[in-house]
């Protein structure tokens, strides 16, 4: 049996019900990247796997590989979790919609970037670090800059980090009108936009430029409230376009992000503080 079992440390990113009482859990592991495994009976009471198979729980896992024929599709090759010992949990992620949305957002990004059967220690460490920071965020407002920061770092790990401190083309200083090209991966100054015509491009507000500029640091140097929420929402949206450009997939959690930061309007109805179509939207240069 030992040849078919292995031990890994991983964080649960997603779980889907299987049959009456089981669950298929997608886990980002340090040693083997992304794995999918069945947690038998984890939806049943009492189950020793139950709480350990919830999203955002880091476990030391013992996994047994199934037997399958060579014709079995990769998606059908499920392994089984036989033992789990919890190392870390993030209970305070459930304190607000913003905390959960941000955590699920980063989990979705990690699911897009992670590769199966390959050690991905850095991705695991960076994701856990940013989840810890989001969990520690005292208010919903503080979550958004941390989410954007986490998104940038995950993009950087995948090699997609956009140029955020100088013009992508001329490496020159950014003055006056500044634009962002997800296709080229970064900021573009006005003269280069005219000269290079880099495809779909968005105008970047001064506050969003400031937010973007702070992202390469390991921690956010700015106090949480020094930039408006709209700036962080804009920065998040620009980074999301980079991710979507490279992976050709959408982040579903992003749909709820705007509603987490709804502000009351004159008619008493909540509306997103920063709607999707803000400012000068994507225009072809």
């Amino acid at each position: 049996m030992s040849g078919r079992t292995y031990r890994v440390t991983g964080i649960n990113l997603k779980g889907i019900p299987l049959g009456e009482a089981d669950r298929i859990v997608t886990i980002l592991t340090r040693e083997r990247g992304l794995i999918r495994a069945v947690a038998k009976g984890s939806r049943k009471q009492p189950s020793k796997l139950g709480g350990r198979m919830e999203p955002f729980v880091v476990n030391d896992l013992l996994i047994v590989q199934g037997r399958w024929s060579a014709q079995t599709e990769t998606s059908q090759r499920l392994q089984r979790i036989v033992q789990a010992e919890t190392l870390q949990t993030f209970p305070r992620l459930s304190r607000s919609l913003a905390h959960l949305t941000a955590a699920q957002y980063l989990a979705e990004v990690a699911l897009l970037l992670a590769l199966p059967d390959q050690a991905q220690e850095e991705l695991f460490v960076v994701l856990v670090e940013h989840l810890e920071r989001i969990e520690r965020a005292a208010s919903e407002r503080a979550v958004l800059p941390l989410l954007t920061h986490g998104l940038y770092h995950l993009l950087a790990l995948a090699g997609f980090a956009p140029q955020v401190n100088a013009c992508y083309f001329c490496q020159g200083e950014l003055v006056d009108s500044v634009f962002f090209s997800p296709q080229w991966g970064g900021l573009v100054c006005d003269p280069c936009r005219v000269a290079q015509r880099p495809g779909p491009i968005a105008w970047v507000s001064a506050s969003a430029l400031c937010a973007l500029g702070s992202l390469p640091n390991s921690t956010l140097p700015l106090p949480e409230d020094s930039l408006p929420l709209a700036a962080w929402l804009e920065a998040e949206r620009l980074l999301r376009r980079v991710l979507e450009h490279h992976t050709d997939r959408e982040i579903r959690s992003a749909e709820l992000l705007a509603s987490c930061y709804a502000v009351p309007t004159a008619n008493g109805q909540g509306s997103p503080a920063f709607p999707e179509g803000h400012s000068k939207e994507w225009a072809s240069a």
Binding site: G50, G51, R52, A84, T89
Partner: peptide, 18 residues
Amino acid sequence: GLPMGSELEYADEVTLAR
């Protein structure tokens, strides 16, 4: 918390913490 009839030593850490 703990389900009726369960044993404390087999409870998972998340449930036990709650």
